[in-house]
Design a protein around this nucleic acid. Structure first.
Length: 678
DNA sequence: CGCCCTCGAGTTCC
DNA sequence: CTCGAGGGCG
């Protein structure tokens, strides 16, 4: 079917697609094609070129296969001893499996000497050849047998010794290790590249590999490259003056070769698991450079020799890479649920076969809206790729069509035309992706409205969790927020899973909420477009709910920060008869509708805009916010050049980076406390 | 009219 | 945390 004209266009298209994919993969580090898709296109192109030699092009990606060493400006270097690779363990179970097969070969010896655990640096593998203690060659790994000679560039890396220190080194030795770049150096380098108008590197590993292959060593010298050694190889047989991997590392260090920190000798596999978990949860974030896991090695060299390598490959049986759980996992899309939010928006939610991603089990993932399902062509029953975005919230990247069951093709998902809870036909506002249930009495919306009313930033009713609200609603004890105030201890105590004591506390908490300021009440009512800030603004300006209710749209719009859209929303809400009835019912039950006039803050932070990020050592988030506001400051959510300072805690994310980039002052909790005079 | 800052809203897991 | 959109300001 691939006749020449068609075939020519197809071949052209394939070449471009493959080149683009390679660029996305290697340079941008954002692969758009899966490995399987890449392979499929690649094989199609190769078949096409073989069938029609006229279609071959000198720049075809097919010509790169197996020539990744030869096709460069760099000389080849044959390693004196081949560089092996490691098999991977992604979980404790994988590691136990590795140990089990090791015991099959070495018996009790496998565990006898303990395990030497080291960081797995995410950099470029390197072999340094020393003759009589002098560095003569630096070579990349290549295919394991033959790499590229990058000696001139390696000499510019300052922590690689040009001459080994100490004594006892063999006459010829290849020191194996990893060339890497610190996050800091990586960022500095990218900043320089931006200023020079050059494209930036996607991550430290790619930039380290790129820097090593520079034609001009002067360019490499300007790159902040570093080195860690972890092994060495000696051609021929030599008796070493030590018996364990641990001593090997100590020896390397004594020769002046940098060795990675956080190495540990573990007596048992259980200790290895604990070390690996600490690596992922703690050390990984604290290190100045990237790691992609740890390496576990049987400590005794004699046992290593007994274990040898796997029959076919070059993978030693005595060592394994303990990789971090991947951020992306594949699992089956079992179903799509539809959630109805407080504002009536219908949101599809993917139900997944539980899968572990980055240490937690993921069962649900939001799909945001129905267009997205169609755009990604997701079907129930598909195997999908799931990623944890922003470290926390799971995201579906897309289906894996190769794994679709041909015999039972999954059916496309059809967006609902009616609310799944109340059956009201949905509406879709022009130009908006959101689909809404327009029924203001929809039970699903009721539930969400009530939960919002009791929320911490709203009326702050402790003891009314989502589950409890659901229970009360199902029992018919409450309908709208006003009915909460009719609850009595007797009625509550009769409910299952609710004792006398809890009933008492709950009634007290509900009663206590009556005195909350108007701003919290306004926020709790859930007026569209009125969040915490706008509620405060309205409450402070109008003082009472009555005044706000009677206000003309123009008066509301006059407030700084409120435009025509919000004004119309507020006015419209109070114009509704049922909303007016709700406000009357709340007043009748003694709920406060007045904003207390607060004394002018004369605190140390008056007029300052402050952002808080990460986990503070002693203060909770709300406490910190109250502290700042009590001192006259304002806490905002995002860092901008108007931000006066950023209070940073543990595990700070992108805000810290942004503050640094904008030159915003960064302080810690202790400094904040000092500034507010505590 | 376009840019930048803020705010609202939705979201998962333990 | 992130996205999208309202709103202020030049």
């Amino acid at each position: 079917m691939a006749g020449p004209p068609e075939g020519l266009a197809r071949a052209q298209w394939l070449r471009e697609a493959l080149e683009r994919a390679a660029h996305e993969y290697y340079v941008l580090d954002q692969p758009a094609l899966s490995d399987a898709e890449y392979d499929r296109l690649f094989h199609e192109l190769r078949a096409l070129e073989q069938a029609h030699p006229a279609l071959r092009a000198p720049d075809s990606p097919t010509l790169r296969v197996g020539t990744d060493v030869g096709a460069s400006h760099l000389a080849k270097y044959a390693h004196l001893v081949p560089m092996g690779s490691l098999s991977n363990a992604f979980s404790d179970e994988d590691l136990e499996g590795w140990a089990a097969s090791g015991r099959d070969v070495a018996g009790d010896d496998f565990d006898r000497s303990g395990f030497c655990c080291e960081l797995k640096i995410d950099g470029a593998s390197m072999s340094l050849t020393y003759r009589d203690g002098v560095l003569v060659t630096g070579a990349t790994r290549g295919n394991g047998n033959v790499g590229e000679d990058v000696t001139a560039n390696v000499r510019t890396i300052r922590d690689i010794p040009l001459r080994l220190a100490g004594s006892g080194w063999p006459a010829v030795i290849e020191i194996r290790g990893e060339v890497y770049m610190t996050f800091d150096g990586f960022e500095r380098m990218n900043e320089e590249r931006v200023r020079a108008g050059e494209p930036v590197f996607a991550n430290p590993r790619n930039s380290a590999a790129g820097a090593l292959r520079q034609k001009d060593p002067a360019v490499t010298a300007r790159r902040p490259l570093r080195f860690f050694g972890y092994a060495f190889a000696v051609p021929g047989t030599t008796t070493l003056p030590f018996a364990t991997q641990w001593e090997l590392l100590e020896t390397l260090a004594s020769w002046g070769v940098p060795v990675a920190p956080h190495r540990q000798l573990c007596a048992t596999l259980a200790e290895v698991h604990a070390w690996a978990h600490a690596l992922e949860s703690t050390h990984r974030a604290e290190l100045a450079f990237a790691i992609d896991g740890g390496v576990v090695k049987v400590n005794a060299l004699a046992t290593q020799a007994d274990l040898g390598s796997t029959a076919g490959g070059r993978e030693p049986r005595w060592a394994i890479a303990r990789k971090f759980a991947p951020d992306v996992a594949e699992t089956r899309l079992v179903g799509i649920e539809i959630q109805v939010g407080r504002t009536g928006v219908l949101t599809p939610r993917a139900v997944l076969d539980p899968v572990e991603i980055g240490g937690t089990t993921v069962t649900y993932a939001t799909l945001h809206n129905f267009d997205l399902i169609a755009a990604k062509d997701l079907r129930i029953g598909d195997v999908v790729q799931v990623k944890r975005a922003g470290e926390v919230i799971p995201q579906i990247l897309g289906p894996v069509p190769e794994r679709r069951d041909a015999a039972q093709p999954p059916s496309p998902f059809v967006a609902p035309t009616a609310c799944p809870v109340c059956g009201t036909p949905v509406v879709r506002i022009a130009d908006e992706v959101a689909v809404r249930c327009p029924n203001e009495r929809c039970p699903a919306r009721h539930l969400e409205e009530l939960i919002h009313f009791t929320a911490r930033a709203a009326m702050d009713i402790r003891g009314l969790s989502e589950q409890r609200v659901r229970q009360l609603l199902d029992a018919g004890l409450i309908s709208d927020p006003a009915t909460l105030y009719d609850l009595t201890e007797d009625v509550l105590a009769a409910l299952p899973r609710l004792g006398e004591k809890s009933a008492q506390q709950l009634v007290a908490a509900i009663a206590a909420s009556k005195t909350q300021p108007l701003s919290r009440l306004l926020f709790g009512l859930g007026i569209p477009d009125v969040g915490e800030e706008t509620a405060k603004l309205l409450a402070r300006h109008f003082g009472t709910a009555e005044a706000l209710q009677q206000a003309a749209p123009t008066e509301i719009e006059g407030l700084h920060g409120v435009g025509p859209s919000i004004a119309a929303s507020v006015h419209g809400w109070f114009a509704s008869e049922s909303n007016q009835a709700l406000v009357r019912a709340l007043i009748a039950r003694g709920v406060n509708t007045v904003e207390p006039t607060r004394a002018e803050a004369d605190g140390a932070l008056r007029g300052l805009k402050i952002v808080i990020t990460g986990t503070l050592p002693t203060l909770g988030r709300t406490e910190a916010k109250e502290l700042v506001e009590g001192a006259g400051g304002k806490v905002t959510d995002s860092v901008s050049k108007n931000t006066d300072f950023l209070v940073v805690g543990a595990d700070a994310g992108s805000k810290l980076d942004k503050a640094k980039a904008l030159g915003v002052e960064v302080i810690d909790e202790a400094e904040l406390l000092r500034r507010v005079g505590r």
